[in-house]
Design a protein around this nucleic acid. Sequence first.
DNA 1: TCTGGGGTCCTAGGACCC
DNA 2: TCTGGGGTCCTAGGACCC
Length: 406
Amino acid sequence: MDAFFVSVEELFDPSLKGKPVVVGGRPNERGVVSAASYAARKFGVHSAMPLRTAYKLCPQAIFVDGHRERYVEYSHKVYEVLQRFSPKVDMASIDEAYLDLTGTERLHGTPLQAAHKLHQAVKETTALNCSIGISASRMVAKVASDQAKPNGILWILPGQEASFLAPLDVRKIPGVGKVTEGRLHAVGIRKVGDLAALDAAFLEQHFGKWGLALAGKSHGMDAGGWFDTEVGEGGGPKSISHEHTFMVDTAETAALDGILVRLSEMVARRLRDHDLWARTLQIKLRYSDFSTFTRSRTLDHASQVDAELAAAARDLFHKAWTGKPIRLLGVYAQSLEATEGQTSLIDEGRAEDWRRTLAAVDKIREKYGQDGIISLASGMKAAFRQRVHENPENLPGKDPKKGKLS
DNA sequence: TCTGGGGTCCTAGGACCC
DNA sequence: TCTGGGGTCCTAGGACCC
């Protein structure tokens, strides 16, 4: 999708059209640009740039907050259109997808004809522009769609991959970022063609396994990594995480603990939504000087329970924290499993209690939003009251109106 | 310039096992 | 006395993507 977040915002506020627009937050906030309109890009503003920098470059830009729900909604709309063109669809991100058109010629014609139809269908159902790259390899299709922006279609014929890539900067290869680009420049490699001219063995010597993959990529092959998978092969999530950057760095234990609990609750909630259990819990902390540390622990059983994740998160944090002000905290669930795994018989009853209580908590959160429940403690009480309200039998031997909660 | 939040994949050392 | 080889799991860090 072209300038996806900005384009969606323009649908909700047409007065933004044609103007320099920055999505991501207020210009004085801690944060970065999520997306910039083409008018804003003319001033040098681009995504991932600090908002304060964007403001200095383009003070007349209109700064708007991001609305994730809107982007997800439109992403789904696009996905539905794509499914009409092929059963093999990969949403690679919220605004990027791969289609395998193999065997759809009788239905949609040549790849170019299919792309035109697809482009039109996306425009008709979403009123949004997209760009399309067509190729025999996923990686080249991606680069081609990049080169086709804005609002274009580019077909790289089989056999033309290397000559298409050759004049491009190495940075255009997906997976080559700032660091790799610097290392390549250091040995005189600037264009993809420079890479392609080198011996694969030389690249392997300098850059290891990654160098070998680079050699393949420079010739247009899906060499190694994610691009080497079939379209539509991806499974569920491999990790679920939430992190928070404080408006002002803080060393207040209560504030830090509060955020850790909140982040753990959000992670646990999403684990339950996906029916997943986490075997490993990780935290991240970042200090004022941006130094960043992670600490992780494998749990004795996989969990999706708020309190278990929060307890591990707080323990890891307090063992690692130097006491200096904190800029960012994060909680990450990893090694996700589809079942709870081993729990002791003694814990079984307790686990069942947790399951039922958390299901009730989730219901309340669905109704009143995440803020309907401020903390785990109040959440427990609310869930308990809900259960008593639904069926007074749940409060053994007590008058539901007077019953004390423990 | 002063650096978000959600992800994936890779590397590398050490523990541990056979 | 001076010590293998293969494998997996755990932990920490980092590059990269949108």
